[in-house]
Design a binder for these strands. Structure first.
Lengths: 100, 100
DNA sequence: TTAAAGTACTTTGAAAAACAAAGTTATAAG
DNA sequence: CTTATAACTTTGTTTTTCAAAGTACTTTAA
């Protein structure tokens, strides 16, 4: 039972980021406003956490026009999904396995 | 599917605190040094997170002497266990349930 | 046609949280 | 007498988080 904490990903030490990733694990291409409204965040707060996840390359962006309106959507990258499931696995192991 | 993020407890937005709580969910009375060594933390870092959890009344302390040496142990309170399982449940619901 | 509202941010600044490093008190072992 | 262990606390810095306001462009409403 070594290196318990290190296996948890620091990027996911945040409720908002957990929320974004959860959404993007199940849904392909979720747009900015949907994310903002579902997670009940301000534009700025959402944008800042999205930026953090983008910098880690855990999510990717698609910008397009729907009709005449700009539309920005996000989805989890392969690396992002892996990092997230790894994190959750580590958490589960930690909760279940910490005896001694 | 409302109030997704709010159900996650801010106190557990931290790897160290998740580690401490995980330990104390399964083990009754874990002492300071054991916690410190297993989680591979410095005295100061461990102490500060313990303090935060104590202030929330999620853990309680017992100070005694073992032989001639001081020994400080911690365990999760009822409220602490509830808060932690509530948090984990919310997380699970969020991961599994965020469709739409 | 002027005003208001929506989309998707960025910037700024402040507050909160986290952390490392060193200091502390007290006992105990070598 | 020196070093070590236990369990912290203090100090100061760095990092993180967030709210609030600003921006640029478009569209819808009055």
């Amino acid at each position: 039972m070594k290196k318990i904490i290190v296996q948890l990903n620091k990027t996911f030490d945040n409720r908002v980021r957990l929320g974004i990733m959860s959404m993007l694990m199940v849904n392909d291409w979720v747009d900015f406003t949907t994310l903002r409204d579902l997670l009940e965040l301000s534009d700025g707060r959402l944008a800042s956490h999205i930026k953090a996840l983008e910098e880690e390359q855990f999510i990717e962006v698609r910008k397009q026009f729907v009709g005449r309106k700009p539309n920005t959507s996000y989805r989890a990258t392969k690396a992002g999904k892996k990092a997230f499931t790894d994190h959750l696995d580590a958490l589960e192991r930690m909760i279940k396995g910490v005896k001694e």
